[in-house]
C-alpha cells in the first residue's frame, strides 16, 4: 500500500514538474526579417500599445535586447488586438526601440503561446521548453536574463 502511495506521489510530482513546451515560432518581423525560435534561447514579450504595464516596461525590453550579445534572442510580439501595424511602427520609431517586433495580425502566435493577458514574458530554451513565464517584468526574469548574459 505504501509503495502504491509512493508511486502515486512520484507520478504527481513528475507531472507537475514537467515544463511547458511550445511549437517552434517562425515569423516575420516588422522590418521583414525572418525569425525562428528553433535552436535558440528566446525571450518573448507579448504586448500592446494600449497596455500601460507593457509600455512602462519597454525600456527594460530594449535593455534586455541590447545586452543579449547572442546569448539569447529577444522577440517582441504585438498581440494585434485593437492594434494596427502602422500605429505600432510609429510607436517604436518614436521611442527608437530596436528590438525585433512581430505583428500578430491573426492572433495565432498569441494563441500558440496560450497568452491571455498583457504583458506576458516567456523565456524558452532551444527546444521550445518554457524556462520562465510571468505577467510583469519580475526580479526573477531579470536574474534569468543576467545569468544568460553571464552577469551572475
Amino acid at each position: 500500500m505504501n509503495r502504491v502511495i509512493f508511486y502515486l506521489l512520484l507520478t504527481l510530482l513528475s507531472t507537475t514538474s514537467t515544463a511547458k513546451e511550445y511549437p517552434i515560432l517562425n515569423a516575420s518581423t516588422l522590418t521583414n526579417n525572418v525569425i525562428t525560435s528553433k535552436g535558440k534561447i528566446t525571450y518573448l514579450k507579448f504586448w500592446a500599445t494600449w497596455c500601460a504595464y507593457c509600455i512602462e516596461e519597454m525600456p527594460l525590453l530594449e535593455q534586455s535586447y541590447q545586452q543579449a550579445n547572442d546569448h539569447y534572442q529577444v522577440i517582441a510580439i504585438n498581440i494585434g488586438f485593437n492594434q494596427s501595424e502602422k500605429g505600432i511602427k510609429a510607436y517604436l520609431d518614436k521611442h527608437n526601440y530596436q528590438f525585433p517586433t512581430v505583428f500578430d495580425e491573426s492572433g495565432k502566435i498569441t494563441q500558440q503561446f496560450q497568452v491571455l493577458g498583457t504583458p506576458q514574458h516567456i523565456l524558452i530554451d532551444e527546444n521550445g521548453k518554457e524556462i520562465y513565464r510571468s505577467a510583469l517584468f519580475t526580479d526573477e526574469l531579470q536574474q534569468h536574463l543576467n545569468t544568460l548574459q553571464g552577469v551572475n
Partner: peptide, 10 residues
Amino acid sequence: LMLQFSVRQT
C-alpha cells in the same frame, strides 16, 4: 469565437 470570426478590433 474571436479567432473563428477573425475579430481583431472591438
